[in-house]
């Protein structure tokens, strides 16, 4: 564990050194700012007026979209696991969402919705199929021996769900959340950039591109990565706590 951490830290330092080397070689900040310049920008960016409101704007909308996807993904996967007709009826939507490029959805949403709803909807749209498919897979992979036991003992659907399916979907749900949070952030910010949503992180990225502020672009990117990782860890932590509570029932 400790050794692996040392190896990973070494790899990160090597990547940063490579980045520094390339930026020195290019020697044009508008093309590639050096890591040192990005760190310097990060040290000042959070003190600027409007930083907190910009972060909160995107954070709340992306989290909201993810939470809706989480709730709806779980509910519909449970229903699809119980009634195969639900799975069949949802199949075309899930396949479409998975295969249509996110940019197409963003442009469609710009026509249909207001800018305020765009981020929420895109984050939802990208996270939903991941959560739905994973949870459904978890339900389908429930131990047939346990299900046979439950059938023999005439266990109600509710208790089967709690004692057999819920523990079984745990690894699927946690892995889905880890992936879906990152995807929701990527798609959500992309939507903000394309839609130039006022007061969002995406707008900051757009402005950085317009004004050739490469250090700003990379500093905001670092902030997005940090937010995404923190939110992912937080959700996984909350899920594990919920599971601990359920297991004590």
């Amino acid at each position: 564990m400790k050794r692996s951490l040392i190896h990973k830290s070494g790899a990160v330092l090597l990547a940063l050194a490579l980045w520094q080397g390339i930026s020195m070689l290019v020697n044009m900040d508008i093309l590639l700012a050096s890591p040192l310049k990005v760190i310097k920008r990060l040290a000042t960016i959070w003190t600027e007026k409007g930083f907190v409101s910009t972060v909160l704007f995107s954070l709340m909308r992306i989290t909201c979209g993810f939470l809706i996807a989480l709730a709806l993904g779980i509910i519909l996967a449970v229903l699809a696991g119980r009634f195969s007709i639900v799975e069949t009826l949802l199949w075309p939507y899930v396949v479409t969402i998975k295969s249509v490029p996110v940019a197409s959805f963003i442009i469609l949403c710009l026509i249909w919705f207001s800018f305020n709803q765009l981020t929420v909807f895109i984050a939802f749209l990208i996270a939903f199929p991941v959560i739905y498919s994973n949870v459904l897979q978890g339900i389908k992979s429930a131990d047939p021996n346990m299900l046979e036991m439950a059938r023999l003992y005439d266990v109600s659907w509710g208790r089967r769900l709690l004692y057999i399916y819920v523990p079984n979907i745990k690894p699927y749900l946690i892995s889905a959340c880890s992936v879906a949070v990152g995807m929701a952030w990527k798609a959500g910010v992309a939507a903000e950039v394309i839609g130039v949503v006022n007061g969002s992180i995406g707008e900051k990225l757009y402005n950085a591109k317009i004004y050739f502020q490469n250090a700003d672009l990379l500093a905001w990117t670092v902030i997005i990565i940090l937010l995404s990782v923190v939110i992912e860890k937080l959700f996984v932590f909350i899920l594990k706590k919920i599971y601990e509570g359920v297991e004590k029932l």
Binding site: Y163, P167, Y243, E247, L249
Partner: peptide, 16 residues
């Protein structure tokens, strides 16, 4: 045994 491994013995019995 066909027990729900994450739950206590009491919960496993209450399942049925």
């Amino acid at each position: 045994d066909r027990l729900s491994e994450d739950f206590s013995a009491v919960s496993n019995i209450r399942l049925v």
